[in-house]
Computed example of a mutant assay.
Amino acid sequence: MFGKVEHELELEVAANEAWKLFGTLEIAKFVEKEMPQIFQKVELTEGDGALGTVLKLTFVPGIPGPPSYKEKFTKIDNEKRIKETEVVEGGYLELGFTLFRVRFEVIEKGEDSSIIKSTIEYELKEDHAANESLVSTQILANIAELAKNYLNKNKAPK
């Protein structure tokens, strides 16, 4: 079975500014520092932030979902401002998912505004259908909200 969930949040910064955070490894450093109640550790295990980079995400015990997994950067489009990662080891793959993809897309709205669209696409084996309840954009929504506050505080003066 295939599914998709999305979350959108308007940012009060230009799309290029938001992409500097979401389109690079900065987002990994950001979530590890700003979300210690969710992320115990975010480790770079392979690469430098380019296509093929692998991160290991370890969650604080008690967070719904798998305790950890590795994700790989499978798409980085700097022109369209889209970055996709897929779980490649552990985590959701051990829970019956055959695909668990997260996409961040920064959409230009105006000169000083943009939208961060977060999407999870997944495929799940029928005999693990109950695990579909583990799919949620809540953590992505939290990341977007914290990023919005951070970007607003740190935006370059006009």
Results as ranks from 00 to 15, higher is better:
Ala129Met: 11
Lys33Ala: 13
Leu99Pro: 03
Val102Ser: 08
Gly62Tyr: 05
Phe22Trp: 06
Val13Met: 02
Glu34Gly: 00
Lys75Ala: 07
Ser68His: 12
Pro61Cys: 04
Gly110Val: 10
Pro64Asp: 09
Glu105Val: 04
Thr74Ala: 04
Ala156Cys: 01
Gln138Ile: 09
Phe97Gly: 05
Tyr122Val: 06
Lys80Phe: 01
Ile76Asn: 03
Gly47Thr: 10
Tyr122Lys: 00
Asp112Arg: 14
Leu95Phe: 11
Lys56Leu: 13
Ala144Pro: 01
Tyr150Pro: 01
Thr137Asn: 07
Met35His: 00
Glu86Pro: 05
Lys41Phe: 09
Pro157Cys: 00
Leu11His: 00
Lys80Pro: 02
Val31Met: 10
Thr85Lys: 10
Tyr122Ala: 04
Lys117Pro: 03
Gly23Tyr: 01
Thr98Trp: 06
Pro66Met: 09
Ser114Lys: 05
His128Gln: 12
Val135Thr: 08
Leu140Thr: 00
Leu124Pro: 06
Lys80Tyr: 04
Leu124Gln: 02
Ala144Asn: 04
Val5Pro: 01
Lys20Ala: 14
Glu86Phe: 05
Leu140Asp: 00
Leu99Ser: 12
Gly65Pro: 06
Ile139Ser: 02
Asp77Thr: 11
Arg101Asp: 01
Leu57Gly: 01
Gln138Glu: 14
Phe30Thr: 01
Glu121Ser: 11
Ala18Ile: 03
Ala156Phe: 12
Thr85Asn: 13
Glu12Pro: 01
Ile116Met: 07
Gly23Phe: 05
Thr58Cys: 05
Glu94Cys: 06
Thr24Ile: 08
Phe73Gly: 01
Glu10Asn: 11
